[in-house]
């Protein structure tokens, strides 16, 4: 029963997230690129998406911390990584370039699959390939190397 509720919660929150992306204009790749075009015809409206989302999540997450545990799960699954290392920065650099080139980040791209078809499918297929390339080929090697250097366990994702 708990499992069913958890899956229902995942589907429900996912739908709310997807609806929010559609309403906010974040799925509009052209508008996202307008938001990023600071030196040109800048459209600052999408800054309000992040402001609104963080404005709710900041007090929301504080509230969640007050409960000792989530309502449908045994414990919270939070990122344990603290270090700011080259992986974080290099990953963010590459992601930023890809985001700027197309105007899609992962959430809006998955949402766009439902109504734009082929172009979104091309992007998402390539995105999944990039994820698999990292998780299956690159991350295990990096983990091996940093384990030799005495930094085992500093890769989230890789150890699973």
């Amino acid at each position: 029963m708990m499992t069913f509720l958890r899956l229902l919660a995942a589907l429900g929150t996912g739908s709310l997230f997807g609806f929010g992306l559609a309403l906010s204009g974040m799925v509009d790749a052209g508008r996202v690129r307008g938001f990023l075009d600071v030196a040109g015809a800048w459209d600052p409206s999408l800054a309000f998406v992040l402001a609104g989302a963080v404005g709710v999540a900041l007090p929301g997450f504080r509230l969640a911390r007050r409960f000792g545990r989530p309502l449908l799960e045994v414990c919270y699954d939070l990122p344990g990584q603290r270090r700011i290392d080259w992986r974080l920065v290099t990953g963010a650099v590459l992601f930023g370039v890809g985001w700027g080139l197309a105007g899609f980040c992962p959430g809006p791209a998955v949402a766009a699959l439902s109504f734009v078809g082929t172009p979104a499918l091309l992007f998402v297929a390539a995105m999944l390939a990039g994820m698999v390339l990292h998780d299956r080929l690159v991350a295990p090697r990096l983990a091996g190397r940093s384990a030799a250097g005495g930094q085992a366990g500093s890769l989230p994702g890789a150890a699973r």
């Binding site: 990953g91 930023g96 791209a109 989230p156 994702g157």
Partner: peptide, 30 residues
């Protein structure tokens, strides 16, 4: 919802690869 997509198919593939790889290496996205 409105959606304008200016990128060519090739650019979409390159961008998708960068977004997929980069978000995994950097452990997160937007």
């Amino acid at each position: 919802p409105a959606l304008r997509l200016e990128a060519s198919p090739w650019l979409l593939v390159v961008a998708g690869l960068l977004v997929g790889f980069g978000t995994r290496l950097g452990a997160g996205c937007t």
